[in-house]
Design a protein around this nucleic acid. Structure first.
Lengths: 146, 146
DNA sequence: CAGGATCCGTTTCGATACTG
DNA sequence: CAGTATCGAAACGGATCCTG
């Protein structure tokens, strides 16, 4: 399943991978909202259909952005985590978040509990990105230990 | 045509606007490749179909990301430019470019004539973003004068 | 000839029901 | 819990046509 790209522009090729609503939504949920299981995604606010979710998870896995692991105790639960390649999308997600916070404020008044997060994000993007990545890596390691 | 968003998450709502392959491709072409006219987009490497292009341009216009102006001398040519809201997507585009440069290098060896651009981008993202925006604003003003 | 609009076959999406 | 199967709806895309 070698990726087929439509044209020679690197940016456009990147969009062949992440230029899709659900791809970035899933990455965002994993990175920011600590979603891990199929059920987490299905029950989320975004309410993706199960067949779409399965397809997108497979695609993300094929592209090496996420990896599926087994829940250490509960055998029938899978845990999805971002790979390093997936984690490298964090700056993109942060820019997306900041753009929405700036440009959709009239439509979506930022929720109280998120204000602090956005402020911190805007203040030092690089630090925020690192924090998100570190948090995710630690959660992943913790899940394998327990 | 008030935008309808699927859920309350700002990021997801942003994806209702820009979470589409063509939207970002068009913004990228305008910002980085100085594409201006319908013909420019159609003849580009990405080769979008005319009906799709017309729909996406209209959508971008409805969302206030681009604006259509008349070519000052050639009456039958329209010029599209990014608005300030559209220009504010520049950081996102830059992150996308950097991600693709880092993660798709094996598939898409960066073209020689782009190497310098990527290096400059990576060295100081903020400066690069400003340069792109400034360049676009100047081109827009120049086009109205001539 | 630029800038679309229309038609139409094909692909993808998405909601729900169902299965291991 | 973690997915498949199914099927109607929507989007895509190519070719062509229209309009100034």
């Amino acid at each position: 399943m070698a990726p087929e790209f439509r044209c020679d522009c690197p940016i456009t090729s990147a969009l062949d991978i992440v230029g899709d609503r659900w791809m970035l939504v899933i990455v965002k949920q994993m990175l920011i909202e600590d979603k891990r299981t199929f059920k987490d995604f299905v029950e989320s606010d975004e309410a993706v259909a199960t067949n779409i979710l399965a397809a997108k998870l497979k695609c993300l896995e094929n592209h090496g952005l996420i990896a599926k692991t087994r829940h250490p105790t509960n055998k029938k639960t899978n845990l999805y985590f971002l790979t390093e390649k997936g984690l490298s999308l964090a700056p993109l997600i942060v820019e997306l978040a900041l753009w929405s916070d700036t440009n959709l404020r009239d439509v979506h008044p930022t929720m109280r509990n998120q204000k602090e997060q956005f402020a911190s994000m805007r203040k030092d993007r690089k630090a925020f990105v690192s924090k998100l990545q570190r948090h995710h890596r630690e959660a992943m390691e913790a899940s394998q230990r327990s």
